[in-house]
Design a protein around this nucleic acid. Structure first.
Ligand code: SF4
Ligand code: SF4
Lengths: 132, 132
DNA sequence: CATTTACAGACTTAATATATCTATAATATC
DNA sequence: GATATTATAGATATATTAAGTCTGTAAATG
């Protein structure tokens, strides 16, 4: 039970894009190099963010990635969900009615975490000279 | 990023033990059968709960497992930590100073979840005719 | 002593994460 | 239009972890 490295890469990339130009896209080469990950792998991860509508890609020379939405609209949870999926952290095979207390407790706990991630916008971290 | 099945088994077992006698231990055979898991595997999981001091085991004929602490002292988080470990859900290779905001946000989010799991005692669910 | 039970460790299998490789499509620049 | 540059897709490969099995040992009961 850990966040994947892919999520880590996605968060760092998004942070870089927020601080970058909203017009001129940043190439995956550059994004990957500063994180010590291969460009092709990072590209695969970023494609998920594209499909989630958070960033957009520009093919061809001088292409790359840039934000598509306003910074203020993008939350941590958006990014995490795009990479890790949206299904619940706790799942059981059966479903013993609505009154199952184990599920209730676990789901509530997850919601607490999600609420915090949902209320923290990416813009909150921008311009903070965060290297890498 | 999911809770493991082992955690699921541990939670269900603990719930059964809370509702069982605090004196007469319950055999792993019975605990495993009602969850549809092999006794040897469940035994391996329960050993971690024993080492965490939550339950105690009784070897020999008519042996098994029973609670060692008061129900009220055992929280969800105790059980989860015993199985999943206590390390943080978000980890990065580097450490760019105290002011790293990504880590701060992620850790805070995790703490929200943990707080809920820590304040929910196992006893809160007991006696609720929860089958399986 | 024979039976019942938990425990330990080696081992196997299955599932998932983490990449890599190659070919293709789109775009800019010349 | 030709060429270089970049993202995308899909197949494949490797590594890591989860999930489960098997076998033998130790402890307690009766
Ligand atoms: S008791 Fe709840 S958590 Fe357990 S198997 Fe039933 S529905 Fe799932
Ligand atoms: S910026 Fe923060 S999360 Fe990212 S590598 Fe540095 S310390 Fe880790």
């Amino acid at each position: 039970m850990k966040f994947s490295k892919a999520t880590n890469y996605a968060l760092h990339t998004m942070l870089m894009l927020v601080d970058a130009s909203p017009i001129k896209p940043v190439g995956v080469q550059q994004l990957a190099e500063s994180q010590g990950v291969s460009p092709t792998y990072l590209s695969k991860i970023l494609t998920r963010l594209v499909k989630a509508g958070m960033i957009e890609s520009v093919t061809g020379a001088n292409g790359g990635y840039r934000l598509s939405r306003k910074k203020d609209d993008i939350t941590f949870l958006d990014i995490i969900h795009a990479i890790e999926g949206t299904s619940s952290l706790f799942e059981c095979d059966f479903l013993h009615g609505e009154e199952c207390l184990i599920q209730t407790v676990m789901k509530e706990a997850e919601e607490k975490m999600e609420w915090h991630l949902k209320t923290t916008k990416l813009a909150d971290l921008a311009q903070n000279k965060t290297t890498v």
